[in-house]
Design a protein around this nucleic acid. Structure first.
Lengths: 122, 122
DNA sequence: ATTATTCTCAACCGATTGGTTGAATGTATA
DNA sequence: TATACATTCAACCAATCGGTTGAGAATAAT
């Protein structure tokens, strides 16, 4: 379990990339099979150029990787970057914490449960 | 564990809300203690109006709730909406799936591991 | 060699974003 | 009542966003 701080810039990019439903659909499709830009663009009612730009945003966020082979560019999902967002969210929800507790695993518990809340941060 | 589909509009709003670092800082601060608009705005080098607008975005995404008391508006975090994003991410990462497997819990496994990937969706 | 395919770059467009300022509203307090 | 405080509304601004079109570069096929 990662506990170090994730750079704000990366979180900006990852959450922004996932805030568009076309890009989320691309992530979903890429989770099932990798594909070329043309193949990935096929299901959408927009130009190839638009999808190409969406893929660039996903790449900028580290959510996909490209493997250029000849004139085609094969994209594949990078789940590690998805976990960046996941880890951030896990800090503020009890969902998985409770599940871990139910298995008797307390490694995620804070040792000091201070009554005084930490200072607000900018 | 939820398996139904989350409305795209809500995912749009939640991920967009979290794509701004000021709003993420507000979420973090609210995870430690609820606060008024003025109190929440204090750590930031921007106008009160700007923070008020950020809180409105968070509220629109269902990430915070308000309790109006007199002339002050007390904001508090709604972790259920954070879980909306969390559940979406969990569909595409192996992180927690592997952890569940390690506990011998296979409820997240697909019964049919088809070799043919499902059709791409728009 | 010519033609077709895959993909990106550049310019452009309207809409939205994150910020500002100033006025307005409602609520405490002196 | 008059005044200070907490918050929002409205207008504005530059920057970014998601889309378009058209041109161009590189590769594959005929």
């Amino acid at each position: 379990m990662r506990t170090d701080t994730i750079p704000e810039e990366q979180l900006d990019r990852v959450f922004h990339a996932l805030s568009d439903r076309t890009r989320r659909a691309l992530v979903r499709n890429l989770s099932e099979a990798q594909g070329t830009v043309t193949a990935l663009a096929e299901p959408f009612d927009m130009s190839l150029n638009a999808v190409s730009k969406h893929l660039k945003v996903l790449e900028g966020a580290g959510l996909i990787e490209r493997h250029n082979s000849g004139r085609t560019s094969v994209c594949s999902l990078n789940t590690a970057s998805l976990e960046t967002a996941q880890v951030w969210l896990d800090q503020y929800t009890e969902f998985w914490n409770e599940m871990l507790d139910s298995f008797g695993d307390h490694m995620k518990r804070k040792t000091d449960s201070a009554a005084i809340p930490p200072k607000a941060r900018k």
